[in-house]
């Protein structure tokens, strides 16, 4: 019986994951991205241990605008705060905002894209119109619109998950403006998946539409969602930086964008205080670059053929 002569390796889910990791880590970009990201995640996890509590104008430890020295590795800002201290604490804020916004974006984008692609017809038309609307919506405008609403609901001093209102606004705004990108990708993937025979089989097996979406489509969408999720984080960090730079951040919970904004307003650039602008700027670049590298490596791992054609 030729069919029983096939050799099996006794591998299941664990083996599949191991194989995936081997291919994924084979990409140089993935290695660089992961190491860089690890570094920032550790920094963001324990800022207090690394550099002590967040410095404010009151407990600032140095002189004004001191260039980098052995005492202040990254110099000080215009009120004498240690820039290293600020940047390390900023990592936590920036990453939290970006990751939470990405979760919102992925949940919304996947749900809407999958529903539109699976049901098709009128649901598809209307959901994609909504998607296009959010696709072109500028985040700054949306932020201006919903800030008063959030302030009304939370109160000026309120907190949600330890986030003050202005940061909460930023998270919601990034989430709402970035899901459209995810929805389009998920929809197009759903359109091709739903023609596959295993969806027909699921229907004949009596599975409901919801169960087909959750049990059959979603697991097959995970690669796309993962790869694009990494790109969404990179975009979220940028948007967060620019929104904060425009003054939507919170001075009491300074993110990298807020630091850039404060330095800019204090005239750091004209005063030649490059460290005030450079330190948070380089952090933004490195973190978003590592997410892009990871996202591309994930994409390559899942669709190895895609990049053959440049």
């Amino acid at each position: 019986m030729s069919e029983s002569t096939v050799r099996y390796s006794p591998r299941g889910r664990a083996g599949a994951i191991k194989g995936f990791l081997r291919r994924f880590l084979g990409y140089g970009g993935a290695q660089v991205g992961l190491v860089c990201l690890m570094f920032f995640l550790i920094v963001a996890a324990v800022p207090g241990i690394l550099v002590g509590p967040l410095q404010t104008a009151i407990n600032a430890t140095g002189d004004f605008l001191v260039p980098p020295s052995s005492q202040h590795l990254l110099g000080t800002d215009e009120v004498g705060r240690d820039v290293l201290n600020l940047v390390v604490h900023g990592a936590r804020i920036s990453l939290t905002i970006a990751l939470l916004a990405t979760v919102i974006s992925l949940v919304l984008g996947t749900t809407i894209g999958m529903t539109a692609g699976y049901y098709g017809g009128r649901a598809d038309v209307w959901l994609m119109r909504l998607t296009d609307f959010f696709f072109v919506m500028p985040s700054f405008v949306l932020a201006l619109v919903i800030t008063p609403v959030v302030l009304e609901v939370m109160g000026r001093g309120g907190e949600i998950l330890g986030l003050r209102p202005s940061l909460f606004v930023i998270i919601v705004v990034i989430g709402m403006t970035s899901w459209a990108f995810v929805a389009r990708i998920v929809r197009s993937q759903t359109l091709s998946l739903k023609e596959r025979t295993f969806i027909d089989r699921a229907r004949i097996a009596g599975s409901s539409n919801l169960s087909i979406m959750v049990r059959h489509l979603l697991p097959n969408l995970v690669p796309q969602i993962g790869a694009n999720g990494a790109l969404v984080v990179a975009g979220a960090i940028y948007v967060e930086t620019s929104l904060s730079f425009l003054g939507l951040g919170d001075p009491l919970q300074p993110s990298w964008g807020t630091l850039l904004s404060l330095a800019q307003r204090a005239g750091a650039a004209s005063a030649g205080a490059w460290w005030c602008l450079g330190a948070p700027g380089v952090c933004v670049l490195m973190v978003s670059l590592s997410f892009v590298l990871i996202g591309n490596a994930l994409d390559d791992t899942f669709n190895p053929r895609r990049r053959v054609i440049p």
Partner: peptide, 15 residues
């Protein structure tokens, strides 16, 4: 119930 021509296509690769 139904049996399909292409069994590979008829089975969800993740189940």
């Amino acid at each position: 119930q139904m049996i399909f021509q292409d069994a590979y296509q008829a089975l969800n690769p993740r189940h």
